[in-house]
């Protein structure tokens, strides 16, 4: 089955809010076993696209399949194979880290003994064991990302969908998250994550898609997209950035 179907398959996903188009028809194939980076400037529609892909936001048109299972027609089967770290979404933050893991594990129908064992390991590896009894609301931003990632990993999903996993994370935690994700991919899992940090994408990803203005502008393996230039040059060119000429904002220097 894994051989036949891409890990994630998006077809013509579109969404507009109050008449304002956020995503205008996104097609994307994420091959199984790939480490996929979804790049885009702020407001490009990354979060909207990923939310529609995992069943958090109903698309106006189009569909999403996880390993061949339709997310919207057969959500139960599809969601079992998914691990999600949504961005800007609060966790149930009045639980402690351990309680939150237990909640997610049981919610996924796991055996309590397995939940205990895996949670202890995850808390240990992510250096959260000391904070296991502090409520998540009192965690720092980086710790929240880590506990969110732990919740997404707990049930051993086949596909991880991570929205901005490296946002507001200090370098030490970022390195830890990178290691874990690389091990997960090496073990046969698939990761797609959104970001606008070029170095991380360049270092980690096998495949890249650049999203801007609600549509995919470039897609392919890292080498195909990058060519012989740096990823940042390609990105700025595709998105259409501008550089300051020095005339404006003159009052900034006195």
């Amino acid at each position: 089955m894994t051989g036949e179907h891409p890990a994630l398959e998006l077809r013509g996903l579109a969404k507009s809010f109050d008449g304002k188009v956020a995503v205008a028809g996104v097609d994307l194939d994420v091959p199984a076993g790939s480490f996929y980076g979804l790049l885009g400037p702020n407001g490009a529609g990354k979060t909207t696209t990923l939310s529609m892909a995992v069943g958090l936001l109903r698309p106006d048109a189009g569909g999403a399949r996880v390993l061949g299972q339709d997310v919207w027609a057969d959500p139960v089967t599809a969601k079992q194979m998914l691990g999600v770290l949504p961005d800007g979404v609060r966790l149930f933050d009045r639980l402690s880290g351990g309680e939150l893991l237990a909640y997610h594990g049981l919610l996924r129908g796991m055996d309590p003994a397995v939940v205990d064992k895996r949670s202890a390991e995850l808390l240990d590896v992510l250096a959260l064991a000391d904070a296991g009894r502090t409520m998540v609301v009192d965690y720092s931003a980086g710790m929240k990302k880590k506990i969110g990632l732990a919740c997404a990993l707990l049930h051993g999903p086949r596909l991880l969908v991570l929205d901005e996993p490296f946002e507001a994370v200090d370098p030490v935690s970022a390195a830890l998250i990178r290691d874990i994700l690389q091990r997960y991919v090496a073990g046969g899992g698939t990761v797609i994550f959104s970001s606008h940090v070029m170095e991380v994408v360049q270092r980690l990803c096998s495949h890249v898609a650049i999203l801007a203005g609600g549509t995919i502008k470039r897609v392919g393996t890292l080498e195909q997209v990058r060519g012989d230039r740096s990823l940042e040059d390609v990105f700025v060119e595709v998105v259409g950035g501008r550089t300051a000429t020095g005339e404006e904002l003159a009052w900034l220097s006195r």
Partner: peptide, 21 residues
Amino acid sequence: GVVAQLFPRAAGWLRRDRFGA
């Protein structure tokens, strides 16, 4: 373990499954 932490004493009689969580 963490599962035991999640359940308050008043809810201790619940089964450790989705409903219980």
